[in-house]
Design a protein around this nucleic acid. Structure first.
Lengths: 211, 211
DNA sequence: CTTTGTGAAAATGTTCACAGCC
DNA sequence: GGCTGTGAACATTTTCACAAAG
């Protein structure tokens, strides 16, 4: 069965929510309650979960702790990914220190930049390497995910470096759409912040609300 | 006619792409070419644009410059929004200097933090204010959009401040789902970076590619 | 009485296919 | 020949509604 992309997105949302609830020592949650927290419908929650199995108990709801485990297994079965950030600017800096990556099982273990003044320095405990050493370092450190946080003009170089490496996934913050040649091998997820601002502007103007 | 949310998202994507193309002095673009750049189908491009009017010319395609103007009018008719960032940490810092916001017509004109050591300082040309002055400052500066880049635990306070202010839209980087009481008035758009990482992890594991 | 899991129905979104225009 | 705009066909996704289970 093919799982809709929207379902995967919501599953991640549910997981986020459940993790917060877990800390509050709530043992069971109904699809209704989870739906209210994540702003979807109860049927939607049940349908989404049904793609992956039967996790609930009739009349009681879902065991929060167990559901968290199940969803983590679905989304991050490896439990631990090494990731790197390309671009040691302000955004790269912020992302290196972003506490939630580690909580979700993603460890930033290397930074890359082309600026000689930055190379060799550290952000927190993470060292900044010369971007030319991308392949060598990422292979040695078994890094499979790259977060691209460089200015747009650096795009070309990065793209070629990544195409030659063993990177499997990219979280891309640069506006330019990456056109990785070996796209069949590499999964790219774009995060376009000015797109978000445009959408926000549109929704405000239309006085609509959505997600 | 009701415009699908997905269409709005894609329109923003097209705009981003067209702006890059405009610089390259390409005068006309076909739905086919625009589709290839943004990884959708040509029919999709045409259908999306059709929600807002007839912008193309048969046999020629779309006048890039004119289409950029049209799409900007749709997404950001105001052309200029004042925005603020709540949280002068690493992420707030990065977003303040994020060059694409200004290009898209969004000016960061204030920062807010609760740390007395930060209050009064500047990031670039933008001053950091005491978060307690949120309503006063945002009203004086006619700020309608707030970008929330605080740690999760600061959520409650911010939420109450915003609910009392004249803010119309929120770009929310905190994991906690905001539950602004007067939600009917305020549009909230969530950017959840660890959700993105989870999705990336899922897609890599499934060896699927999407968007 | 509550709540899940799920077929069936409804709604929504996408692709096809082609008329009409350059 | 090339390309847009658009109804119609198709596909997907969401909601409804209810049987089954605790």
């Amino acid at each position: 069965m093919d799982v809709p992309f929207a379902t995967v997105e919501r599953i991640a949302k549910y997981l986020r929510c459940l993790k917060r609830i877990k800390n509050k020592k709530i043992k069971f949650i109904s699809s209704q309650t989870l739906a209210e927290h994540t702003k979807v419908t109860a049927e939607q929650v049940r349908k989404d979960l049904a793609y992956f199995g039967k996790f609930g108990r009739t009349g009681t709801g879902y065991d929060v702790k167990k559901l968290v485990q199940k969803l983590e297994k679905i989304l991050n079965p490896k439990q631990n990914w090494n990731a790197c950030i390309v671009g040691a600017g302000a955004l790269g800096h912020a992302l290196t220190n972003y506490p939630d990556f580690k909580k979700a099982g993603f460890n930033i273990t290397a930074l890359f930049d082309s600026d000689p003044k930055k190379i060799g320095n550290k952000i927190g405990t993470v060292k900044i390497y010369d971007v030319k050493k991308f392949s060598v370092i990422t292979e040695k450190k078994e890094i499979k995910i790259a977060i691209i946080a460089t200015p747009e003009n650096a795009k070309e170089e990065i793209e070629q470096l990544i195409a030659k490496s063993k990177i499997k996934g990219i979280l891309n913050f640069t506006p330019a759409t990456l056109s990785i040649k070996s796209r069949q091998k590499i999964t790219v997820l774009d995060v376009d912040l000015s797109q978000k601002m445009y959408i926000l502007s549109y929704l405000i103007t239309q006085k609509k609300r959505r997600q």
